[in-house]
Design a binder for these strands. Structure first.
Lengths: 132, 132
DNA sequence: CTTATATTTGCATCACAGTTGCAAATATAT
DNA sequence: ATATATTTGCAACTGTGATGCAAATATAAG
């Protein structure tokens, strides 16, 4: 089977493979600095460009939490190049601070306002499975 | 009746009053650059410090959307100094790009995962009332 | 397997957001 | 009206992310 990089039609370089592995090996969403620590030696510019490429090709999506660094997680197959909002829940654990993506069916609240909702994403705080 | 600034126990200065007025006068959440435009002449450092103070005292909260500047909106009375996550929906209009805070009752999805959810916030994309 | 072309990498350098220390100015309390 | 506490403005700094370009590497074609 073709690698993710090949499937997304971008060159398969050692650096890209390392970054992809770090992100997909983690069960929770990771920050740039987490990736930097895992990489050891690396080039800052190349890392930023790699993240940008992964975002643009729909390999990863970013999770934005007020007051914290952006975090990145693998995309589902449903993810589009131009819209990375996932209909799922982003849970940040108040104990370990990890952020998990949790699948969620489109729900009742969607029609509770006067706005027409296309896609949504829930940011939640609580205690994750592992910390309970 | 005491002003918001007095109630929150911080000095009432002309600059703070202007910034507060700009945020509370807007029906949707505003970015720093929006505030800067409205202010005309101002000091960058003072603005950042003002925003920080407002966040810390629970006067405003920030809304973080991946790939976009942070936006700020007035807090509800329920807002705490240390946790600015609101149990409400942040709707970004795909037409006008405005972000609105929409009240939302704690909902069924809260117990659909194995995590213990304390507070949540929904980021949604769609078309706002005004653009329909 | 070799070569030509396209893509990516690393370097130097820049742009910009946000922060800090400190002295002057302003707000609050007495 | 004055003393004290707080805020403001300035200059300078830090860290994140971007850009142009030449060298290195990956892919496609024979």
């Amino acid at each position: 089977m073709k690698s993710i990089l090949k499937r997304k039609n971008i060159s398969e370089t050692p650096f890209r493979k390392s970054v992809l592995e770090i992100i997909s090996d983690s069960s929770s969403a990771v920050s740039i600095s987490y990736i930097e620590n895992k990489l050891g030696e690396y080039n800052r510019v190349t890392l930023y460009r790699t993240i940008k490429t992964f975002l643009e090709t729909g390999i990863i999506h970013s999770i934005s939490i007020a007051g914290e660094d952006l975090r990145y997680a693998m995309c589902e197959d449903t993810c589009q190049q131009d819209n990375h909002i996932h209909n799922h829940l982003h849970l940040q654990c108040t104990q370990c601070n990890s952020v998990y993506c949790v699948d969620l069916p489109a729900d009742s609240f969607i029609n509770k306002s006067n706005h027409l909702i296309d896609s949504f994403e829930v940011h939640a705080k609580g205690v994750c499975e592992h910390c309970q």
